[in-house]
Structure formats: structure tokens, C-alpha cells
Design a protein around this nucleic acid. Structure first.
Length: 591
RNA sequence: GCACCCGUAGCUCAGCUGGAUAGAGCGCUGCCCUCCGAAGGCAGAGGCCAGGGGUUCGAAUCCCUUCGGGUGCGCCA
């Protein structure tokens, strides 16, 4: 139940009637106006700009904005659940609803089995969300965490909003990086056999996390890989190392409460281990359509490239699809570029029936967006769209001081360390409380603080407090049924205090927030909403300190207590739904 | 040089896809706390929305431009 969408339809209906009466032109785009909560609550419950939006059309039909506003307001005022509709300011129509509307909202929450606000989107088509996709060459560090949390929350948000979501992880297990991994693991293997490997050479992965991989190789193969040429041991070691890294990454994801439906392998697309070469197939297909050709590129401007070699190469005509230059698909050593395999990968998503693709990347890949969108357009004949959400980097702080991170030395801060220190809920909520394209300072000292300064604590506390209020009510009136379904039958008209009204209005907005956050693909809006709802709940609770008659439990008024239990229950249900989207626990009590 | 992102209170950031008087937290100032949970509560000050043009009934929001930051710029991913 989305009262904003509901009234959007009603106003559209009134406009259609006015069109019929000849006071507006026949061809009227009825989607241009909005129904929204007015910023100033004294203006009522809903507000629409419809009359102003169609001012020009009204004039053309011999009317004007003012007259149109009056007509719409008159139509609205006749509706049974509208208390009052009046024209205000430059032509806004402010609508005051009858209290029964909020009674119905609460009933929808209480009877909704946690689905209040769900499935608000008219579009329920499948959408593919790809996120994390970290190289399987080591444990996840905090830089990965943001994209992981963002992607996971976005996927949950879209699913809650009614889209059919597939969550995907692309394993970059082809290319030079995993060969470096294999050589690094091989060194640890020799070490496990007792060889003196001295320092890890420059360019290899020095982290200790490869030691157990070396030991496992020694257990499995004994000394049989020692002394063999690299061509023989590398594929074997690589496969074991990638498996070990992916197992580690899955553990990291689990610790972060991040889930995926599907892990797709880049290597499998190339067919190097047998199977079809889907990369080649994709390139051939594009070549047949004239989108792939042999040509030369200009050397890039800016930082000079030392070993630039002018050569004729296989290029993708991405400039036909909005990119700045055409992009190479085959490296000088004959292997596929990352872009080539990525084209095949995105094609595979499209072939699996997805026309809506979302990729979550780090901001350092921003320069890659245009060519990938060009590729998706080319491969799908313009049918599929790729939306790339870039996450800015995270600066890890401790009490205001940056924490040094150096991946090369192997002592970078891992995701696991941060989760262990501050908890998964804090990590997730803090990362979602920022727009994804804004940089984020993550202060370890601050997020474990248990005070109102800490938004994670503040929101969770609101849920715990709501639960506590229900426990309190149960103690005072042991015979009351405080299950949501039973509370839906409470006399909700008794909730007539102004700060109760503020909470009711916020609850009514939840479906709208979900809808807009899903459309904008911005889960942070849900985080801010949860914080707002928590604020208004805490504020109302605090009013009970000075005004005892506003307290949730009223020992001499059973019906009033019951109604207020319904309010408390609704707040916890909506908070729980919002927190579930964010992947943050909604605790019954704080400890 | 080019592309993308960003610039809103002292600080960290929202701003509902163009609406009414610009929002929150921290910090600051003042008052309050015997009271369902004080790991507090209430209130106040604080703004040329980086600058300049444009579009329109109406712009922090859309377009152009200048300045200032960030990220990238064959054969890494």
C-alpha cells in the first residue's frame, strides 16, 4: 500500500476527466507530475504539483493553472478518505487525509508478514547484479568491502522492490594475475618441502596466506612437482591456488554477510581448459557484423607509454556506440584482452535472458564504463542496458588518523580484520550510509562507540527499544495478544498525538522510499530512511519522559496501550524490513 | 591534452530525478535530567548550495563555461 502512488493514480484520473471535459488538450502526458510529502508537515499529508506542471497546456485550452488547481482540488476533496484539499502557494494542491488512512497503513504493516513496501515496482523483469569480482589472488581487503556491501544491498533492494534478481560474481581466473599467483604458490610449495626460498621476489605475492596452499600442495604431490619445468607444474598449481583463494574469499564474503547466486569463471569462457571458446565466438559474431576490424590505434595522450609499439590489431568499434576510441581485443602475445573476455561474459548474461545488467565496480575502473556499455549495446543489438555503479575508495581511519595500507608489502588491512574488530553490522551500515560515488572515511574507533553519535547503534537501538516496549506491554497486560496480526485489530484511531502522527507519516513513506531507491539504484536512501524513522521513534519515546500520558504503556487504559503496541510493533517491523535490505541485524535488545 | 565522478553550515554528509522558508549528525552556545531503558533530553546560532551565464511559472537539482579536488587514459584486471 503506497498512498503516494495511490494518489498519483487518482490525480491522473481527475486530469483525464478534465481532458474529457475539454479543459485540457487530448494529448496529455499524465506521468509528468508528482505526489509527494510536503516538506512542511503543516501543509498536510500529501502535495502535488500537477496544476503547475500542466499550466501551459491549461492555458492553451483556454484555462489556467489556478483554475486547473481548483478543479483538481475539488475532485480530491470529494474522495471519502480526503479531509481537505486546497490550493496553496504558486499552485500546489495540499491534501489532508482522514486519520483512517493511517489506520489502514498500520494494518497493512501489521498484516503484511514483513512485506509492507515490497514489490512496489511495476517492472518485475529479471535483473542481473554483478559485484565484488575480486581477483582470486588473495584475501579481500577493505577496498573490496564497499563494493561487496553495496552490491549485496542493491540486489536485496531490487529483489524487495519486486525485481527478479540474480547475484553474480565474476572470477578473474584467466590472465597474467593468476599465473603470478601460481608462481607465488609454487614458491610456498618448495618452502613446504624444506627448500630455502629466501625473500619472495619482487612481483610475486608475498602474503603469508599462500603458506598453507604450499603445504597442501606438498601433501598432495610430495616432491613430484619439484624440478619439473614450469609448463608442467603451473596449470596444476594454478588450479589448486585459485580454488584455495576462492574458498578464502567465500569465507570473507560470508563474514561480511554477502551472498551470491552464481560464480562465473572467466577461464571457462576462454575454453583453454576444454569446452567452447565463447570469447572467440563473440568476437567472430561481431566481426561478421563489421563491428570488429583490423586497424591501428593512436598512442594515448597524457602519460607516455614507454614500450608503445604501433601495430595492426583486432579492434572493437566502440566509437560507434559512444566510446572515445576503438578498443583492442587481442594482445600482442595472441591472448585475449580482459575486455574481450568481458564482452563474452556480458554476452553470456544476455544470452541467459537478462536485458537489465548492473555491474558494481571500484571507481578506479571508471574509464572502462563507456566501452563496456558499448559492448553490451553491440552484443545485444541495443536491447540490453548496462548500468555501472562505481564505488569510491574507502579511507580507513583510526581516531582521525589514516591507517596505512600497502598491498605490496603484504601487510594490508584485510576485510576480516576490520569485521572482527568492529562487527559486520557496523561495517555494512557505515558503508551504506554514504552515496556510493562519494568517498568514504571509515573510522574504526568511531563505529564501535555505543552512543547516538554512532548511526548503527542508534538505528538498532530503536528496533531494540520497540521490542522492549512490546515486552513492557506484555508484562503489564499479560492477556493481550501482541502479535502483529492481533494488533491490526486495535483501535488505531487512538493514535492522535502529533509525534505519533510524525511516525505514522514516515511509515507510510516506506513503500515510496523503496520504490525510489530501487529506481535510482541507491540503497543509501534506505539507510537514511531507517535513521529518520529511528529518530522520530526515539523522539516520541522521549516525549513520554515529560508527558507520562504519552507513554506506550498506560496501566489504566488497556485499549490505548493496545493501539500504542500496534504502533511500536509497526515501527519495529518497518525498521526490520529496512535493515534486512541493508543486511544489518535488527536486535531484540542491546547489550 | 581527453573522459568520468565530485564541490551544499566550522567538520562529515543528505536533499525525494525541477517545487513552497535549505536539512541531519558532530562541534559550538544555552536550558533540562527523582519520570515506561539517561550508553541522556530540549532549544539556539551557523548558508551568496565553488564562481558566472542559460533553459522555465520555479534551479542546489537540467545545459554551457571558468575555477578547484578525485579517478582513469593499448598489450594489467
Amino acid at each position: 500500500m503506497n498512498i503516494f502512488m495511490d494518489f498519483q493514480r487518482r490525480v491522473a484520473g481527475l486530469l483525464a476527466g478534465i481532458v474529457k471535459a475539454g479543459n485540457l488538450p487530448q494529448t496529455l502526458d499524465l506521468t509528468r507530475f508528482v505526489v509527494e510529502p510536503p516538506r512542511d508537515p503543516s501543509h498536510g499529508d500529501l502535495s502535488t504539483n500537477a496544476a503547475m506542471v500542466y499550466a501551459k497546456e491549461a492555458k492553451a485550452a483556454g484555462s489556467n493553472a489556478r483554475t486547473l488547481a481548483i478543479e483538481i482540488a475539488a475532485g480530491l476533496a470529494e474522495q471519502p478518505d480526503v479531509d481537505q484539499a486546497e490550493v496553496a502557494g504558486p499552485g500546489f494542491i495540499n491534501i489532508r487525509l482522514k486519520p483512517v488512512v493511517y489506520t489502514e497503513v498500520l494494518r497493512a504493516v501489521l498484516n503484511g508478514d514483513g512485506r509492507f513496501g515490497a514489490s512496489v515496482q511495476t517492472d518485475s523483469s529479471p535483473v542481473n547484479v554483478e559485484y565484488v569480482s575480486a581477483n582470486p589472488t588473495g584475501p579481500m581487503h577493505v577496498g573490496h568491502a564497499r563494493g561487496a556491501v553495496f552490491g549485496d544491498a542493491l540486489a536485496s533492494l531490487l529483489a524487495f522492490a519486486g525485481r527478479k534478481v540474480t547475484r553474480e560474481y565474476y572470477i578473474n581466473d584467466a590472465g597474467a594475475q593468476v599465473d603470478v599467483l601460481a608462481r607465488s604458490a609454487h614458491l610456498r610449495y618448495l618452502q613446504a618441502l624444506g627448500d630455502d626460498i629466501k625473500a619472495i621476489p619482487e612481483g610475486l605475492y608475498p602474503g603469508d596466506y599462500l603458506v598453507p596452499v604450499g603445504e597442501a600442495l606438498a601433501r598432495e604431490f610430495g616432491a613430484s612437482l619439484r624440478g619439473k619445468p614450469q609448463e608442467e607444474w603451473l596449470p596444476v598449481v594454478r588450479a589448486r591456488a585459485i580454488d584455495a583463494m576462492m574458498a578464502m574469499i567465500r569465507e570473507d564474503l560470508k563474514a561480511l554477510n554477502v551472498v551470491h547466486d552464481l560464480f562465473s569463471s572467466e577461464r571457462a569462457l576462454t575454453g583453454v581448459d576444454g569446452g567452447a571458446d565463447q570469447v572467440r565466438a563473440a568476437i567472430d559474431d561481431l566481426r561478421a557484423r563489421g563491428i570488429v576490424y583490423l586497424g591501428r590505434l593512436e598512442p594515448p595522450k597524457g602519460a607516455p607509454i614507454e614500450d608503445w609499439e604501433d601495430r595492426e590489431q583486432t579492434l572493437f568499434r566502440s566509437t560507434d556506440f559512444g566510446d572515445d576510441v576503438d578498443r583492442p581485443l587481442i594482445k600482442s602475445d595472441g591472448g585475449y584482452t580482459y575486455f574481450a573476455t568481458d564482452i563474452a561474459y556480458h554476452k553470456s548474461k544476455i544470452d541467459r535472458g537478462f536485458l537489465a545488467l548492473v555491474d558494481v565496480w571500484g571507481a578506479d575502473h571508471g574509464g572502462y564504463v563507456k566501452r563496456m556499455q558499448a559492448a553490451v549495446a553491440a552484443v545485444s543489438n541495443g536491447k540490453a542496458t548496462l548500468d555501472v555503479r562505481l564505488c569510491q575508495l574507502v579511507r580507513l581511519m583510526r581516531a582521525g588518523e589514516p591507517v596505512k595500507m600497502s598491498k605490496r608489502s603484504g601487510d594490508f588491512v584485510t576485510l576480516r580484520e576490520v569485521v572482527d574488530e568492529v562487527g559486520v553490522d557496523a561495517v555494512r551500515f557505515m558503508m551504506l550510509l554514504r552515496k556510493n560515488d562519494a568517498p568514504l572515511d571509515f573510522d574504526l574507533a568511531k563505529v564501535i562507540e555505543q552512543s547516538q553519535d554512532n548511526p548503527v547503534f542508534y538505528v538498532q537501538y530503536a528496533h531494540a527499544r520497540g521490542s522492549s516496549v512490546l515486552r513492557q506491554g506484555r508484562t503489564t497486560f499479560p492477556d493481550l495478544d501482541l502479535s502483529p496480526k492481533a494488533l491490526a485489530n486495535a483501535n488505531l484511531a487512538l493514535l492522535d498525538d502529533e509525534s505519533e502522527g510524525a511516525i505514522l507519516r514516515l511509515i507510510a513513506q516506506f513503500p515510496r522510499i523503496v520504490d525510489q531507491a530501487a529506481t535510482a539504484r541507491e540503497p543509501h536512501r534506505v539507510a537514511f530512511y531507517a535513521h529518520d524513522l529511528a529518530t522520530s521513534f526515539h523522539a516520541h519515546w522521549n516525549r513520554g519522559k515529560d508527558l507520562p500520558h504519552l507513554r506506550f504503556v498506560n496501566e489504566i487504559n488497556r485499549d490505548l496501550t493496545n493501539a500504542r503496541m500496534a504502533l511500536a510493533s509497526s515501527v519495529t517491523l518497518v525498521l526490520a524490513a529496512a535493515l534486512a535490505i541493508l543486511g544489518v541485524k535488527a536486535p531484540q535488545e542491546m547489550r
